[in-house]
Write a protein that binds this DNA or RNA. Structure first.
Length: 285
DNA sequence: GTCCAGGGATTCA
DNA sequence: TGAATCCATGGA
């Protein structure tokens, strides 16, 4: 492999490790020299050199880094967003505990496919599934180790035999993933146009895929399209909302959805990410 | 052996 | 509407 090319980015309140290990993305591995992963077919190493500096290393790079800045959301007005949250001691505590946690802007197909694989799986297992899918169905990518693979394309998943998906430990999710890929390939739903729709319209489209309910759809809206009003409610968030905001009364899913939208506002998805990580790692029971 | 995991679809009351 | 159940699988 040819020499690595480096580029550095000035950052403020950006915790790279926290962000890459926060359960929104599944393809990053921590090594002694940085975080290594594959973004849209490009192998890349990221390292937080200092609180104010992130260094990216990759081979055969041109000088256009807009795709990486977009992926990392380096230009996102983080402080402005934080200031618009409600005065809320619970959320404030979560934000303080997870300072520098960011939302990435991932690619819709990979996000959709990954979260179809995520149902009733632990994050470590989702990572394992996504890695297997890439290894078995994706294409090789030039990297330092020489054994990296791109996440499989829609076509690669749609045309793969179901048995191959089952070998990737997808279990009952294999059929969902394959049928979703077939629907996209058959132009039943175009992932490209969803970003221009309203949150509700885009969610409705996503929920037409098999294996995609409200929660998975909201993850794709939030992590893949940047709809920051999307608020994925999973078991951890239910626990967090119940314990912090409704310790006495049990609320159903609809009530929790209404509360979160009303209470957290247009950047509710960011609040969700703070609460999720806070519950999962910091304040775990 | 038992329980649970960043759920969804189906069935049944 | 809402609760119960099944769906594969692996880690704790």
């Amino acid at each position: 492999m040819s020499e690595l090319k480096n580029v550095e980015f000035q950052v403020r309140d950006y915790d790279l490790a926290l962000t890459l290990d926060s359960g929104q993305t599944f393809r990053w591995t921590e090594t002694p020299v940085g975080w290594e992963g594959v973004i849209s077919g490009r192998w890349i190493r990221l390292r937080q050199v200092s609180p104010q500096l992130i260094r990216a290393s990759l081979s055969d790079a041109d000088d256009d880094w807009s795709w990486l800045k977009d992926y990392l959301q380096l230009d996102f007005p983080y402080h402005e967003m934080l200031e618009n949250f409600p005065a809320d001691p619970h959320l404030s505590r979560a934000i303080e505990a997870c300072s520098g946690l960011r939302l990435l802007r991932q690619y819709p197909w990979e996000t959709l496919a990954s979260f179809i694989c995520s149902s009733t799986k632990q994050i470590v297992q989702i990572r394992q599934i996504v890695e297997l899918l890439s290894r078995r169905l994706g294409g090789p990518v030039q990297s330092v180790q020489g054994n990296s693979f791109s996440f499989p394309s829609v076509e690669q998943v749609a045309t793969a035999p179901l048995s191959l998906l089952l070998e990737c430990k997808l279990g009952f999710r294999a059929r969902y993933l394959k049928e979703t890929a077939e629907m996209i390939l058959g132009d039943k739903i175009d992932l490209k146009n969803l970003g221009e729709l309203s949150t509700e319209e885009a969610r409705e489209k996503l929920m037409q895929f098999p294996g995609v309910g409200r929660k998975v759809a909201d993850c794709v809206l939030l992590f893949g399209y940047g709809f920051q009003d999307a608020f994925p409610i999973d078991v951890w968030i239910i626990k967090a909302l119940q314990r912090l905001y409704f310790p006495r009364r049990k609320k159903n899913l609809i009530q929790l959805q209404r509360f979160s939208a009303r209470h957290f506002g247009p950047h509710a998805g960011y609040a969700q990410q703070f609460l999720f990580h806070y519950m999962r790692v910091v304040a775990s029971v």
